[in-house]
Simulated scan of single mutants.
Amino acid sequence: MDRHQVFDRNLLLTRRLRAWRQHGNSADFLLARACEDLEERLSTVERQFDVAVDLASHTGLAARAIQRSGKATTIVRVEHARQFLDNAFPAVVADEEILPLKPASIDLIVSLLSLHLTNDTPGTFLQIRRALKPDGLFLGAMAGENTLAELRECLLAAESEIYGGASPRVVPFADVRDVGGLLQRAGFTLPVTDIETYTVRYDSAFALMRDLRAMGMQNILIGRSRRPLTRHYFMRVAEIYAERFSDPDGRIRATFSFIWMSGWAAHESQQKPLKPGSAKASLADFLKDVEKLEKK
């Protein structure tokens, strides 16, 4: 296996398919929330798109959000497994890290809550940008660094206490500044990133972990420990969680942070930064004027 890989993506697909067979879309509330945000964000874009791609959002929710927005004429879904697809939209089965999209062929690409689990995220961004037509838009959301921070802390604390050491148990999520840098490196113009944070409350850590299993979101880190974990360990995790992150009513809090990102494929019509020295007023003159006003 490539030493640069962080995630076991075969295991990710296996667990997502198992979650889909056992639970269907019963735990898709985070994706549903992201789709609400997507529809709102698309409503502010003063453009119509001929062909849109819903990339690896795992259910039809994102495609339907694009459809409700009225911004796209044709919507195509791209998913890693046929089981995630239905007959509502044209579809392609492909890994999001190896996109089968022709260069400059798509007007809008949307991806919700999947790209943080790619091993070559810079390369995936580059493929997305190349697939866009000039002045095409990429709009996506991925999990940010504060996601499941409480659970991560409790898992590490319990493991250190019981086993005398700890291994990574929660995926390392991205920082918003790093994501902005990746968009720039991939050649997107006018890149924008921002964060939406949601707090979900549960009766216990066990209820949270049940939801994560229903999403297929267990540990897929290649460097994860293979040590079997006992019931005692998980009981201690739940106790620490309740001690550190519970509200007065006894329910616990779980943080989910979405990094929203957008970028355009370059086009001559887009706004460009001014060339150095082309400004008609200098900062020094502006500061002098401010100083004069303050003395009056």
Score class of each variant (00 low, 15 high):
residue 59 T to P: 05
residue 59 T to C: 08
residue 59 T to H: 12
residue 59 T to M: 13
residue 59 T to W: 13
residue 60 G to S: 14
residue 60 G to A: 13
residue 60 G to E: 13
residue 62 A to S: 14
residue 62 A to I: 06
residue 62 A to H: 05
residue 62 A to G: 12
residue 63 A to G: 15
residue 63 A to Y: 10
residue 63 A to N: 14
residue 64 R to P: 00
residue 64 R to H: 11
residue 65 A to S: 08
residue 66 I to T: 03
residue 66 I to D: 04
residue 66 I to Q: 02
residue 66 I to R: 04
residue 66 I to G: 02
residue 66 I to F: 03
residue 66 I to H: 03
residue 67 Q to H: 02
residue 67 Q to T: 01
residue 67 Q to M: 01
residue 68 R to H: 11
residue 68 R to T: 00
residue 69 S to I: 02
residue 69 S to Q: 05
residue 69 S to R: 04
residue 69 S to V: 03
residue 69 S to H: 04
residue 70 G to L: 05
residue 71 K to G: 08
residue 71 K to Q: 14
residue 72 A to H: 10
residue 72 A to I: 10
residue 72 A to V: 10
residue 72 A to Q: 11
residue 74 T to R: 14
residue 74 T to I: 09
residue 74 T to G: 00
residue 74 T to C: 05
residue 74 T to S: 08
residue 75 I to Q: 05
residue 75 I to N: 05
residue 76 V to H: 03
residue 76 V to D: 04
residue 77 R to F: 08
residue 77 R to Y: 09
residue 77 R to E: 13
residue 77 R to T: 10
residue 78 V to P: 01
residue 78 V to M: 04
residue 78 V to E: 02
residue 78 V to S: 02
residue 79 E to G: 10
residue 79 E to A: 12
residue 79 E to L: 07
residue 79 E to M: 07
residue 80 H to G: 00
residue 81 A to N: 06
residue 81 A to Y: 00
residue 81 A to C: 02
residue 81 A to I: 01
residue 82 R to W: 07
residue 82 R to V: 07
residue 82 R to S: 11
residue 83 Q to A: 14
residue 83 Q to W: 02
residue 83 Q to V: 05
residue 83 Q to M: 06
residue 84 F to C: 07
residue 84 F to D: 08
residue 87 N to M: 11
residue 87 N to G: 15
residue 87 N to A: 15
residue 87 N to T: 14
residue 87 N to P: 01
residue 88 A to G: 03
residue 88 A to R: 12
residue 88 A to I: 01
residue 88 A to K: 06
residue 88 A to Y: 04
residue 89 F to I: 14
residue 90 P to M: 04
residue 90 P to Q: 05
residue 92 V to L: 15
residue 92 V to I: 15
residue 92 V to F: 09
residue 92 V to G: 12
residue 93 V to A: 03
residue 93 V to Y: 07
residue 93 V to R: 05
residue 93 V to M: 06
residue 93 V to F: 06
residue 94 A to C: 06
residue 94 A to V: 05
residue 95 D to C: 07
residue 95 D to Q: 05
residue 95 D to I: 06
residue 95 D to M: 07
residue 96 E to T: 07
residue 96 E to I: 09
residue 96 E to G: 13
residue 97 E to W: 00
residue 97 E to M: 01
residue 97 E to K: 00
residue 97 E to Y: 00
residue 97 E to H: 00
residue 97 E to S: 02
residue 98 I to F: 11
residue 98 I to E: 05
